[in-house]
């Protein structure tokens, strides 16, 4: 049961197409798991559709535009002779891949395909390639382990994919998203049970409170 959802401004920005790629990946992954947010997102898409329909002073296309488009369509068809569109089927629980499709695209598979790097204290991470305005990484936090107390200079989105963590404020289980801002200061601890895997995006480097983690920060590549 997902309890922590995406905010309206993030959904609207994702629908408008203005989020940094790293944040979009977290939103798309959460929406893949949460039909409530999918319905909210598609409502924001409907706002975009209403604006498109009402577009003032619609600009005429150049002469021959339709023919040029039909030629494009024909060329495209020849090129690939249309592979049957992939239809996502609901899988039986035991076949359920751990990562939703958008994340699989970035990782190149499920957790086994991730190239984890240790970052101390048993915690591992893998930075995923995105545009540079913001960064996103997978975090692997062994059950019972704490992530060092840290504040945030920008906005940080943390989506739980497996296991759960707790901080001073609340509990976050699989599918839940935590949105931390500059004022959030917390110490997330992975709960006992399955190890915790999260997808975390930030538009600023993390800021750790203790001096040792601060020294370690340059090695985290975030």
């Amino acid at each position: 049961m997902i309890r922590h959802h995406i905010t309206d401004e993030l959904l609207m920005a994702y629908s408008a197409g203005t989020l940094p790629e790293a944040f979009s990946l977290v939103v798309a992954t959460h929406v893949s798991l949460c039909d409530e947010c999918r319905a909210r997102l598609e409502s924001y898409d409907a706002v975009g559709g209403a604006l498109l329909e009402k577009m003032d002073g619609a600009i005429d296309l150049s002469a021959g535009s339709l023919d040029a488009t039909l030629a494009r369509i024909a060329a495209w068809k020849d090129a690939q002779d249309r592979p049957a569109s992939a239809i996502t089927q609901a899988l039986a629980p035991e076949e359920q891949p751990v990562f939703p499709a958008p994340l699989r695209d970035y990782v190149g598979g499920d957790p086994a395909a991730v190239r984890w790097r240790p970052v101390g204290g048993g915690v591992r991470q893998a930075v995923l390639p995105t545009s540079r305005e913001a960064s996103v990484r997978l975090l692997y936090i062994p059950a019972g382990t704490a992530v060092p107390d840290h504040g945030h200079r920008g906005t940080e989105l943390t989506l739980v994919l497996q296991g759960a963590f707790r901080d001073e404020h609340d509990r976050f289980g699989a599918g839940d998203i935590e949105i931390a801002t500059e004022v959030t200061q917390h110490t997330p601890v992975a709960e006992p049970g399955p190890d915790c895997i999260c997808l975390a995006a930030t538009d600023a480097p993390l800021r750790f409170s203790g001096w040792l983690p601060r020294l370690a920060q340059p090695f985290l590549r975030i």
């Binding site: 197409g17 604006l51 499709a101």
Partner: peptide, 29 residues
């Protein structure tokens, strides 16, 4: 969705590709 909404999403994705030169992660189909 309405046709306009659906076409908006295609145009928006093309715009991200064209103007921002970024990938657009999309929810699972």
């Amino acid at each position: 969705a309405s046709a306009a909404t659906w076409i908006f999403t295609i145009a928006r994705n093309r715009r991200i590709d064209m103007l921002r030169r970024q990938r657009r992660p999309e929810p699972e189909d």
